[in-house]
């Protein structure tokens, strides 16, 4: 595998709230190389978005970030805010989930894309606006020169998401973090946006971190997958490892909950019983244990001992955090 652009080691994020310290991300590792796509998968509250915000350094002030975030080998955690500011939006850019709320309603989209450019380049407003039009055109906004003067509310959802992507790409970032970029969109538009991201990646060799709970999208575009559960890594590996050799009961549960047309129809989709634990509520044992169908087979260990990531058969570095030694058979 190529040299990673972004490497994250033992990332921990703790929120200091009125109810005490809440660990939202509890030691995760991942890396992504130029032109590659890493998908981070998990339910709401599993720490996916917090991890990406931590990498960007845009968490609220009550969050404490520990661990290493290396961009081309340069440590970002603990950098002075001024240095970080130069990296944000320039080397690492973020595509948000909800483009309507991510855009400022009071400024034209051209202005907003141009602002992102001006923040990192010493150019005239006019030149920046030209650059914005160029990018809006590149992401497929028709009649970009005219539409650049429109406000966000004058665009459709898909077009707005293109604007947000243009804003993220305007500085040719090394890493693009897309936080559920298609969740708020129609299925047909979703495909267009994913295609756009793939095109961009091919053209610029951008490393893409895709945060998603849409396993269909993940199967299509990702090279590597990180499955997160309760702020920790449940499983990671290549996309084929996950879809063909999933080793963690949670991954199996996610796969089982996904509708498929390539297998004989089941009477109904399987679901994972229960709901994800609130961060920090499970102190000992496996965080997935209360919802796990395999606990009885393993026994006491699931309750007393926290499973660490251990190697599993597969391509490259397939790992899962589960006490089940071998790949579990699906339990129906």
């Amino acid at each position: 595998m190529a040299e990673p652009v972004l490497e994250v080691h033992d990332l921990r994020v703790t929120f200091d709230t009125e109810g005490g310290l809440v660990p939202a991300v509890d030691g995760i590792d991942f890396s992504v190389a130029a032109g590659q796509t890493l998908a981070i998968v998990g339910e709401s509250g599993s720490g996916k978005s917090v991890s990406s915000a931590a990498v960007m350094g845009i968490l609220p002030s009550n969050a404490e970030v520990k661990g290493e975030v290396l961009l081309d080998g340069r440590e970002l955690v603990g950098l002075p805010s001024d240095e970080l500011r130069k990296i944000r939006g320039n080397d690492i850019a973020l595509v948000f989930q909800d483009a309507l709320s991510a855009l400022n309603p009071y400024y034209t989209v051209g202005w907003q894309v141009a602002e992102a450019y001006r923040l990192h380049h010493d150019v005239s407003k006019k030149a920046a606006f030209q650059r914005a039009i160029e990018l809006l055109d590149k992401v497929g906004i028709p009649d970009a020169a005219r539409r650049a003067k429109s406000y966000p509310h004058e665009f459709s959802g898909g077009m707005r998401q293109r604007v947000v992507i243009a804003m993220a790409l305007v500085n040719d970032p090394r890493v693009l973090i897309a936080d559920e970029p298609t969740t708020a969109l129609d299925v047909t538009v979703q495909a267009q946006i994913m295609q756009l991201l793939a095109d961009v990646q091919e053209e610029f060799g951008t490393a893409l971190v895709l945060i998603s709970h849409d396993l269909g999208v993940v199967a299509e575009v990702a090279d590597d997958v990180l499955v997160m559960y309760a702020g920790r890594a449940a499983e990671r590996g290549t996309v084929r490892d996950l879809f063909h050799r999933a080793a963690h009961p949670y991954s199996l549960g996610l796969l089982g909950a996904m509708p498929r047309i390539d297998v004989p129809p089941r009477p109904r989709l399987t679901t994972i019983p229960g709901s994800p634990p609130s961060p920090g509520s499970i102190k000992t044992g496996c965080p997935f244990q209360p919802r796990c169908a395999y606990t009885e087979r393993v026994g006491e260990r699931c309750i007393t001992e926290r499973p660490e990531l251990t190697p599993r058969p597969g391509e490259g570095d397939h790992e899962a955090a589960c006490h089940l030694g071998r790949r579990p058979e699906a339990v129906v």
């Binding site: 845009i58 944000r88 909800d98 709320s101 602002e115 923040l119 804003m167």
Partner: peptide
């Protein structure tokens, strides 16, 4: 609001 986070993510001071 989310667009404030966007502004920060863009690298605005």
């Amino acid at each position: 609001l989310d667009h404030i986070t966007t502004a920060r993510a863009k690298g605005a001071g």
